[in-house]
Simulated assay, not measured.
Amino acid sequence: MRRSTIIGLAAAAMLTLAACGSGETTSSSATTSTSTAPTAAASSDAPQGEAEAVSVPKQLQFTSKTTAGATFEGASLAGKPAVVWFWAPWCHICKGEAPRVRDAAKSSGVSFLGVAALDDVEPMKGFVEEFDLDFPNLADTKAAVWARFGVTSQPSYAFISADGDVDVVAGALSASELDSRIAKIAG
């Protein structure tokens, strides 16, 4: 077997063993400073046709497919506050969190991205439809995006500030905890 296949299988096995999150909320204090080359990204405040260079954190340097089959560039989240929610379609805790994540995405004014793993695309699509998640949700069937963020269980979150600091939090968050962390990155 090729080395990348073995590594991928090992990562998938590790994630499968993680099962459905423990319910504990722990911050990994994984605030990372970005040492990546700037990438041009259009600012929503800039006049049309002007682009402003933003630094893209290494965690956002990926291309993946959404549950609907569209291509998603992680770098599109750079330069603005964003929440990345890691979930699995069979996870009961994730099902309990889905309505509050959906509501926060609609009301917060920050970008949201869901990253589903540990299952096939069809159950992921069903979860997105069941909970009316109208923000992009990736079908991370090989858990490659999970690995970029160091996520080993679901639910987990990554809170990304506009300047590229990334804080990964493992475990479920109450509505007030989620709102507080969003307010912190929204500045």
Results as ranks from 00 to 15, higher is better:
P89W: 04
A75D: 00
T71V: 15
A116G: 15
G49A: 08
G23A: 05
A40S: 07
N137F: 06
A104M: 09
V101W: 03
L118G: 03
V101T: 10
A183E: 12
W87E: 01
Q154M: 06
A70L: 11
A82W: 01
A41C: 03
T36Y: 00
V83P: 02
Q61C: 01
R102N: 09
F86I: 09
T34F: 03
F112D: 11
S35Y: 12
R100G: 00
L17N: 04
E130R: 15
V145P: 01
A98D: 06
G8K: 14
G109H: 11
A11Q: 13
L133R: 09
L77T: 12
S44Q: 13
R148S: 05
E97I: 06
S35C: 08
V166M: 05
S108Q: 07
S156C: 07
A186W: 00
F149N: 08
E50W: 04
G150I: 12
D163K: 13
H92P: 02
T66E: 08
D163H: 02
S27Q: 05
V151F: 01
V110M: 09
G171F: 04
G171E: 05
V84D: 06
A139G: 10
P99V: 14
A172V: 09
A186C: 00
A143R: 01
T63I: 13
S55V: 13
D132F: 07
F131Y: 15
S35D: 14
A11L: 11
K58A: 15
T5S: 07
L138Y: 03
I93D: 01
L118T: 08
I7T: 13
V110P: 03
R148M: 07
A42N: 04
S44I: 13
P136W: 07
S35T: 14
T66M: 08
K65T: 08
T63M: 10
V101A: 05
Y157P: 00
L178M: 07
A51T: 15
D45S: 15
K106S: 14
